[in-house]
Simulated assay, not measured.
Amino acid sequence: MPYTTEEGGRLNNFAKEPKIYKAEPPTEGQKRNYIILGITATILVGGLIFVAFSVSNVS
């Protein structure tokens, strides 16, 4: 484990650094899936809001 000695003889331990990798841009299939999931989520949230307003007493 990597450590350094500070003033007074105290040890300061450092966590292992994670391996660095380069992020890859999404493929066309992943982009399509993101769009489909976004539309589905929007419809779901809109439906939940509609149901909440329709069953509430606020009109």
Results as ranks from 00 to 15, higher is better:
34 Y>S: 11
58 V>E: 13
10 R>G: 00
12 N>D: 07
50 F>Q: 08
38 G>M: 05
43 I>L: 15
14 F>T: 09
20 I>Q: 14
10 R>A: 05
23 A>S: 12
3 Y>V: 00
3 Y>G: 00
38 G>V: 08
30 Q>V: 02
29 G>N: 10
49 I>V: 15
47 G>L: 14
33 N>F: 09
16 K>V: 07
27 T>H: 05
1 M>Y: 01
54 S>I: 01
14 F>D: 03
43 I>A: 15
8 G>T: 01
12 N>W: 10
22 K>W: 06
8 G>K: 00
42 T>P: 04
57 N>K: 14
53 F>D: 11
21 Y>F: 10
53 F>H: 14
35 I>G: 01
32 R>K: 12
30 Q>S: 06
49 I>D: 07
43 I>E: 09
10 R>H: 11
54 S>V: 05
53 F>Q: 14
16 K>D: 14
1 M>E: 03
25 P>A: 13
40 T>P: 00
26 P>Y: 07
56 S>W: 07
32 R>T: 02
54 S>H: 08
41 A>E: 12
24 E>N: 02
12 N>R: 15
44 L>P: 00
50 F>N: 12
26 P>F: 10
9 G>Q: 00
48 L>H: 01
34 Y>D: 10
1 M>N: 07
18 P>H: 09
3 Y>K: 04
50 F>L: 13
24 E>V: 11
8 G>Q: 05
24 E>L: 11
20 I>Y: 01
24 E>I: 08
13 N>R: 07
46 G>K: 04
27 T>V: 06
28 E>C: 01
30 Q>P: 00
44 L>W: 09
40 T>Y: 04
10 R>V: 03
48 L>V: 07
52 A>D: 05
30 Q>N: 03
54 S>K: 15
54 S>A: 15
21 Y>I: 13
35 I>K: 14
17 E>D: 03
59 S>T: 02
50 F>D: 04
40 T>Q: 13
41 A>H: 05
32 R>H: 11
43 I>S: 08
44 L>N: 02
26 P>R: 08
25 P>R: 04
4 T>E: 06
58 V>R: 09
57 N>W: 10
40 T>C: 15
24 E>R: 00
56 S>R: 05
7 E>W: 01
55 V>Q: 13
36 I>D: 11
9 G>I: 02
26 P>A: 07
55 V>G: 00
24 E>G: 02
48 L>E: 03
7 E>M: 10
49 I>H: 05
45 V>S: 04
5 T>V: 14
52 A>K: 09
37 L>C: 11
20 I>E: 15
48 L>A: 08
59 S>H: 14
7 E>L: 12
57 N>D: 14
4 T>H: 02
53 F>K: 14
6 E>H: 14
41 A>F: 13
45 V>Y: 13
41 A>L: 13
56 S>F: 04
57 N>Q: 14
21 Y>V: 15
41 A>V: 05
41 A>N: 06
33 N>G: 01
4 T>V: 11
27 T>D: 06
23 A>M: 10
56 S>A: 11
19 K>D: 08
57 N>F: 10
47 G>M: 07
58 V>F: 04
38 G>R: 03
6 E>W: 12
59 S>V: 15
24 E>A: 08
10 R>P: 00
10 R>C: 02
55 V>N: 01
